[in-house]
């Protein structure tokens, strides 16, 4: 009993998993290749479908909100790309161990290998989507490089300006690192819990579209600021209390030159620490149970 549940073994699992880089990176690439086997464009379909979605929704919503296409389309596209990574960590993360059942039961390997496989696969998809980002950046660079409003303020509204792209865009790199670090614990923790309680993945999928529309991705939180200024109210409920908003904003803001806020770093930092704490507890107590549960 004492040896089965130990911190040392939980940490060793994660350490050994990280060391098996060749294994999980290979498995992740294999997942991608398998999905697009015998298709002519292959993984470029990831890029293409993101591109089509971005253009379609960007055109529609910029008209609906009366926004400048040159700034709104990048805003929506980048939001979408970031969101896909985040929601992927949750939905695919929850099914990580369930999907790897056969491997878990037949080959002794650290559990974290499978979590890293999932996170790395999502990172590869993210990288494919960055091609769309790069193209958009080329097309709309002039619009993004100057101060702009995502939604033009109506008379009587507060004006909410963004500084435009600058050297602060490099903050996107640590921001993405934070997303990956969080993706890893989400995958491990959600994975373990979902293996025991098979309703959790369904629950996450059921909530995912609601979360998508509640989080400012196709709409901008700027509208709230413009209408209500800095007066806290129900605005706070929709954005500030939504942890996903902070994750999206953390990476999206530097990528398109939006106003960056240390609040996002603070919230994400706290979630990272708490999340990993919970995950280590789960790993300590239930790591050895996963092969029994799958």
């Amino acid at each position: 009993m004492a040896t089965r549940r130990s911190w040392a073994r939980a940490i060793a699992d994660i350490r050994d998993g990280l060391r098996d880089r060749e294994l999980w990176s290979h498995l992740a690439w294999q997942d991608i290749k398998q999905r697009y086997r015998r298709s002519v464009l292959g993984p470029l379909w990831i890029t293409l479908s993101m591109g089509v979605t971005a253009i379609g929704l960007g055109l529609l919503y910029s008209q609906l909100f009366g926004a400048e296409i040159g700034t709104f389309l990048p805003y929506l596209t980048v939001g979408f790309i970031v969101w896909n990574f985040i929601i992927g960590c949750m939905t695919e993360g929850a099914e990580t161990f369930i999907h790897n059942e056969a491997l878990i039961k037949h080959l002794p390997a650290p559990l974290s290998v499978y979590a890293l496989r999932t996170v790395y696969r999502l990172t590869i998809m993210f990288a494919h989507n960055l091609i769309v980002y790069a193209i958009i950046l080329v097309i709309f660079f002039d619009d993004l490089a100057q101060p702009y409003q995502i939604i033009e303020a109506q008379p009587g509204d507060f004006e909410w300006w963004h500084p435009g792209l600058s050297w602060t865009a490099v903050l996107a790199v640590p921001a993405f690192a934070m997303l990956v670090i969080n993706g890893a614990w989400v995958t491990l923790l959600f994975g373990i819990v979902s293996t025991r309680f098979r309703d959790i993945p369904q629950l996450i999928v059921a909530l995912s579209s609601l979360m998508f529309f509640m989080t400012p991705i196709v709409w901008s939180a700027d509208i709230l600021y413009q209408k209500f200024g800095n007066v806290a109210g129900w605005r706070a409920l929709v954005t500030d209390l939504n942890p996903l908003y902070h994750f999206v904003e953390l990476l999206r803001a530097p990528m398109i030159g939006n106003q960056q806020s240390w609040t996002h770093w603070l919230v994400v930092g706290i979630i990272t620490v708490v999340g990993w704490g919970l995950t280590l507890v789960a790993m300590r107590n239930y790591r050895s149970r996963v092969s029994y549960w799958v």
Binding site: Q30, Q34, A102, K105, H106, P108
Partner: peptide, 16 residues
């Protein structure tokens, strides 16, 4: 170091 050979189908990809 453990090397198991249990199910021959597991961990092998038939397409590659």
């Amino acid at each position: 170091r453990v090397a198991p050979v249990f199910d021959l189908g597991i961990g092998m990809d038939p397409e590659i």
